[in-house]
Design a binder for these strands. Structure first.
Length: 470
RNA sequence: CGGGCUGUAGCGCAGCUUGGUUAGCGCGCCUGCUUUGGGAGCAGGAGGUCGCGGGUUCGAAUCCCGCCAGCCCGACCA
């Protein structure tokens, strides 16, 4: 009899598989308040790696980090009509504090356009103060009825950028720049995830935005996940918060603002885009631990050799850790590292050492090769590079195989059972969008025929990408 | 908010129909010995207000009533 699988196989029950991975790879736990999430050290290490990579890109795009308060006066939210309408169902509101009822209730930020707008108004006087490019790393609260760890929780962690510009074109260009140079670059180069970049339909747009650009990724069950968004807010918030500047002709004008964010949801996306029946598969560029050196048995100088290997790998710039827990069976430890998705395992045992070699195992492919002890660092480096490329190629192949180009709504329905459908936006329209919604299918984004970003909803010959989504 | 289901050890469950010893099983946990090249084996051990409250009964995890909580499906979201 074969052993029971470590995880529920994806093909049996994908959501169950997801929960199993989150639990067994020790990524997160449910918090005591329904919908809240405890991020465990390994899950948080993944998030910290994401933060580091995204933060560096944000700074390269010229934005600076700052921090705004968790509590926002309720009145701020109500100043922008669409914004308050969009968020009010999921607001957590503090009515009592300091032992008494508050004169004005305070909301826990669901996003910070409003507070930041208030301060932009204070700080911006002249066109010389523009553009103002701010970002903050923070937690936000959006009360959720149907929570799922990482994908949808009542409190989550994210980065939210908020910028102000002299005119529409500068704002639009910056929102697009962030989307491509920060988000797409990060998702493709670090997460090894292919994504569609497109424009949200009016129905799917951020409350208060005039345009929302999205990164849409496909999970291994064929469903879509929105991995990040950038919004052009036009002058909506500038008017609501009176953010004005004196232009170079001495004329007072409202600024044009943008906002953009990615969250801990990306951890969920990463799990579901790459994970397999043995657990997580982390792309090497992201992985908190890129290589684990595993002592098979602590005899004949094996531990010493393993220690040296770890030091050598670290010297070569590899994030390497030692697993010298020789009191736990080899098989158990091997499965644990597979669950955690560590890209490369270097196994060292007496037999290897006797031959002057080590066993190198790739997590993504499962391939095992013997390499000379003296060439380990180089072999690990090569394996990491190959794994990064192969994970991307695999995800891209799966996505393209599960994306059908169709012509009609009926065909789109069919295709969305297993993946994405691409069809002319003209064949969908707002009525078609409502029709699809009845089956739980949404228009993920609109693209031009060549895959580039549309400048307007009513451009001719736009293509709609539709799918079921998380 | 409407419909369906479930509450028994950290997790997953059996037991309930037909009330009756000390409430079991798997995983996990602790101790010891033997193990360690794919989730170890054996032996011993710890761990429970059976969701909560009431009722029926000599006796309730089991039957009855009420409550509470959670899960799944229909309107929104990073």
């Amino acid at each position: 009899m074969p052993k029971a699988p470590v995880l529920t196989p994806q093909a049996d029950d994908f959501p169950r598989w997801y929960q199993d991975v989150v639990a067994k790879a020790e990524l997160a736990d449910n918090g005591p308040v329904r919908g809240t999430m405890v991020i465990r050290p390994y899950g948080y290490a993944i998030w910290e790696r994401m933060q580091a990579e995204v933060d560096a890109r944000i700074k390269a795009a010229g934005a600076q980090n700052a921090y705004f308060p968790l509590f926002i006066p309720e009145s701020y939210l109500t100043r922008e009509a669409e914004h308050v309408e969009g968020f009010s169902p999921e607001l957590a509101v503090v009515t009592h504090a300091g032992g008494k009822q508050l004169d004005e209730p305070v909301v826990v930020r669901p996003t910070s356009e409003t507070v930041i707008g208030e301060y932009m108004a204070k700080w911006i006087q002249s066109y010389r103060d523009l553009p103002l490019l701010l970002n903050q790393w923070a937690n936000v609260v959006r009360w959720e009825l149907r929570p799922r760890l990482f994908l949808r929780s009542s409190e989550f962690l994210w980065q939210e950028g908020h910028t102000a510009h002299v005119d529409h074109d500068d704002a639009a260009a910056y929102a697009e720049r962030i989307h491509l140079d920060v988000y797409r670059s990060f998702m493709v180069d670090v997460l090894a995830m292919p994504i569609w970049v497109g424009r949200k339909t009016a129905k799917e747009r951020f409350p208060g935005a005039v345009n929302t650009i999205t990164c849409e990724a496909m999970m291994r069950d064929g469903k879509a996940l929105q991995m990040g968004t950038s919004h052009e807010l036009g002058q909506n918030f500038a008017r609501a918060f009176d953010i004005t500047f004196l232009d170079d002709h001495g004329v007072q004008q409202h600024v044009w603002t943008t906002s953009w964010g990615v969250s801990t949801r990306m951890v969920g996306g990463l799990i579901m885009a790459h994970g397999d029946d043995a657990g997580l598969r982390l792309p090497p560029v992201l992985a908190p631990v890129q290589a684990v050196v595993l002592v098979i048995r602590d005899e004949a100088g094996v531990t010493d050799a393993a220690d040296k290997l770890v030091a050598e790998l670290r010297g070569a710039g590899v994030r390497a850790d030692l697993d010298g827990r020789a009191d736990i069976s080899f098989g158990r430890r091997a499965t644990d590292w597979e669950l955690k998705g560590v890209p490369v395992r270097v196994e060292v045992g007496p037999r290897d050492l006797a031959n002057g070699e080590v066993t190198l195992v790739r997590r993504d492919t499962g391939t095992k090769v013997q390499v000379p002890l003296t060439g380990t660092a180089a072999a690990v480096g090569a394996a990491l590079e190959a794994a990064q490329a192969d994970l991307y190629a695999g995800a891209l192949a799966r996505r393209d195989a599960a994306t059908a180009e169709v012509a009609t709504l009926a065909e789109a329905h069919e295709a969305a059972l297993t993946g994405f459908a691409k069809l002319p936006w003209a064949a969908v329209g707002e009525s078609g969008e409502a029709e699809l919604a009845k089956s739980g299918i949404t228009v993920r984004c609109l693209q031009r025929a060549d895959g580039t970003l549309p400048r307007a909803d009513d451009e001719a010959d736009l293509v709609a990408l539709v799918a079921r989504s998380y």
